[in-house]
Design a binder for these strands. Structure first.
Lengths: 231, 231
DNA sequence: TCCGGAGTTTGTTTCAGAGCAACGTTCTGT
DNA sequence: ACAGAACGTTGCTCTGAAACAAACTCCGGA
């Protein structure tokens, strides 16, 4: 493995307060690995033996029911920590992480977590902040799921993707990684059929433009209206 | 305020590793307060200026949508920490806490949190464990909400209440605090009408027995079957 | 003791969205 | 270049549960 460059970490929230030498230390103990689209980084229920940082790509965090249904709990973007079960004193991962696009992640053995927290100022703080945001976000999703009709949920899901990973293009804002109708149905607790119909109708209305695994939102404001947020 | 007894804390997970003198210290800085049924301990969006420990009673943790719909995210039982936004570097509470029955809670100013974490061994660990469990639990609820039909969700909700707060009686297991049909509908994202119908039909089948604000599960095993869990 | 409100029950109507089915299209590997 | 798989679209049917409506019961307070 080639030596990793310090600039990989030096701007990220959990590490930005650190000395160069500390970042070097952290990187020297990290394992870097590439994951191809569709492959799992770790799986629900397995031993939480490592924690991770996503350098490049996008992940889906997924839960599976006993009945075999899946749902996407959240997405991870570059720069975020994930698989941080050790932070919560868990010895097993509570969900599965799948690369939604080709991705690269660093990882460290769980046993280093306490040391990171103790030695690197700002690391604990930032990690727990991430956790707090994630908890809030899941509560939002739960509330939405419990109270909103399918159309609004799908609109919200799309907006979340756009906010988190949107890239500006000529035609509008494009979601930066492959998303299928089926993925969106697993984010919103509906069927791919319903998602397909909604997307078709929005396309007719000029709100989105989509091809296979690829969505561009051309009129975000109209989607916001549909989502029923804001006053 | 009368001096609080040390035995209040000495057996609880976050404090059980501590010296007597430390527990004394903690209690001396705590404020104890009674909340009557239906009153709020704190509200969503407000300054997270204190964190809490429930000594007696039961709480509902509730979120409200812009549209005015409410949903119950989780319940708090005696002995649990709550309102621990500071642990997640949040400066505002992400949800509202309501006393589901007459309750008593201790609280401390948020500014003491770092000190508790630093000085009291096991405190941080246990708090984060709680958080981890709560995160997992909410993910469960979300998954359930997204994939299961109403009947299963209501069965699950009832089982969760029973597991968390159930008290054995002659007729079966009784939920230890007042729960209305409406409450259950807010736990499951349905209407009180549907909950009422389900409960009636279960009563006919001898699975539950309920009067106003009061539910006894007489055949938990049959509820488990309905909930569709287990292998 | 009577009133009013909160909680519950039950009936009827309505429709969003799941389920099923069939087909079209674009990719991948050989 | 072809077969098969993965992804997407669309029409039709049917049902679970929301919406609407109306009473009934219990409880606390004046």
């Amino acid at each position: 493995m080639p030596k990793l460059d310090e600039s990989l970490l030096s701007d990220l929230p959990p590490f930005c307060l650190l000395e160069k030498s500390q970042i070097r230390e952290i990187l020297d103990r990290a394992v870097s690995r590439r994951y191809e689209e569709g492959s799992a980084i770790f799986r629900e229920g397995h031993d939480a033996d490592r924690f991770y940082l996503l350098l490049d790509g996008y992940l889906r965090v997924v839960r599976t029911t006993p009945g075999g249904d899946q749902i996407i709990v959240l997405h991870i973007s570059p720069g975020q920590l994930f698989g941080i079960a050790p932070a919560l004193q868990r010895d097993t991962y509570p969900a599965t992480s799948i690369a939604a696009a080709e991705s690269i992640a660093l990882s460290w053995p769980t046993s280093l977590w306490p040391e990171f927290v103790a030695n690197y100022p700002g690391f604990a703080t930032e990690s727990y902040k991430t956790l707090g945001q994630r908890l809030g976000q899941i509560q939002d999703t739960l509330t939405e799921m419990a109270t909103q009709a399918v159309e609004k949920r799908v609109a919200c899901a799309l907006l979340r993707l756009v906010n988190q990973t949107g890239r500006k293009t000529e035609e509008g804002i494009e979601i930066a990684f492959p998303v299928t109708r089926h993925d969106i149905s697993e984010m919103t607790g509906t069927t791919l059929h319903t998602v397909s119909r909604l997307l078709s109708s929005w396309q007719k209305d000029g709100i989105v433009q989509s091809t296979r695994k690829h969505i561009v939102v051309t009129a975000p404001h109209r989607l916001v209206v549909l989502s029923g947020i804001e006053g």
